[in-house]
């Protein structure tokens, strides 16, 4: 029997579409709010709501430590978590290339549901379109989500204050490194898994320890370096980093050494940058070190009044240099 594939008929709105939705999506995303109607009807408690959306294209769609489905849930859950919002409901929209293997679609849907469960979020509506062969790269997913912002929580990239500490919740660069090794034909082998993870639990535990957190950002595309530059600009402050405090796994360091790359610019999908008052550093670290995804959390620097808009690095010889501004495509180099 030949392998079952997604066909254009699955996107035509007729019997096959209904079958696809029933057999793949309803089967996995079953929950009371999952709608067969045109829109999900939800009741939300009083209070502030955060809402976000994110599109996912990743090649390859399956990688060490995750797949595009898990990624599409984590991305939106983490964006909500960064605002101190408990993720409640999500929608997901699929664009699938004709010929995509059905079992892979099932694997992706199962992974989405598992990740959503872990994050405590419900997938309540979805959409499927099938694109002709060559009109999409295997599968694209767009998710949107809403979350309820915890009472007394107020985070923003603009709220970093001089004297605050800068924390990363895990060792950096693993997702970017994983994808680079799988995508490029570089012949390098390393035991590196993407850090892709839903981080509401991480944020919830931090907020339980203290509500006084000024900034939470997930260090996705562009990595920690890029996020720090964003925060420095939005808050109008300087950020001073200690080069030797950056948590980087040996294998990521090795790959970066081979290719002349800097882990500060590699993407993460399960690592946050957290900025909080100095006197909260200890309790935050203590909390994070107990967490499933944040055992390697570390203070990597502090917010300064001087060097506004800039990220400054204290190097291993004790001198201060500017962290180069991130930009452009990451290119392996020999010189």
């Amino acid at each position: 029997m030949s392998e079952k594939k997604v066909t254009l008929a699955h996107g035509a709105g007729g019997r096959q579409t209904a079958e696809l939705i029933r057999e793949v999506f309803q089967a996995h995303f079953s929950n009371p709010e999952f709608t067969a109607d045109d829109a999900a009807v939800l009741s939300v408690e009083k209070g502030r709501i955060a809402m976000t959306t994110d599109g996912f294209i990743v090649s390859p769609y399956e990688f060490n430590g995750g797949n595009i489905g898990k990624l599409s849930i984590c991305g939106t859950v983490n964006d909500l978590a960064c605002m101190g919002a408990k993720p409640l409901y999500m929608t997901c929209s699929f664009i699938i290339e004709e010929g995509f293997p059905m079992d892979k679609l099932e694997m992706i849907a199962a992974s989405m549901e598992k990740t959503a469960k872990e994050a405590g979020v419900r997938i309540v509506a979805g959409d499927t379109k099938v694109a002709g062969k060559g009109q999409a790269d295997h599968i694209f997913i767009t998710t949107a989500g809403i979350g309820r912002i915890e009472e007394g929580v107020c985070t923003s990239g603009a709220f970093a204050k001089p004297g605050d500490v800068v924390i990363v919740t895990g060792d950096i660069g693993r997702h970017g490194c994983t994808i680079l090794l799988e995508r490029e034909d570089l012949g390098i082998e390393a035991d590196i898994q993407s850090d892709c993870a839903p981080l509401w639990g991480t944020v919830e535990s931090m907020l339980a320890a203290t509500k006084e957190i000024h900034v939470i950002r997930d260090a996705t595309r562009g990595g920690v370096g890029t996020v720090l530059y964003e925060i420095a600009a939005e808050s109008g402050v300087g950020i001073s980093l200690d080069a030797q405090a950056l948590p980087v796994s040996g294998a990521v360091r090795g790959v970066c050494g081979m290719l002349g790359l800097d882990p500060l610019y590699l993407a993460n999908e399960g690592t946050l940058v957290v900025i909080a008052p100095k006197d909260k550093a200890e309790v935050l670290l203590e909390t994070l070190h107990k967490g499933k995804y944040s055992a390697k959390a570390a203070v990597i620097g502090e917010v300064t009044e001087e060097n506004s808009g800039k990220v400054v690095m204290t190097t291993e010889i004790g001198a201060q240099t500017l962290l180069p501004q991130p930009g452009g495509e990451l290119l392996p180099r020999i010189c």
Partner: peptide, 16 residues
Amino acid sequence: CGTHTHEIFRLGIRKI
């Protein structure tokens, strides 16, 4: 050597 140039800047050796 360009790698020297790069490392000298990265480490901040000119500053000292």
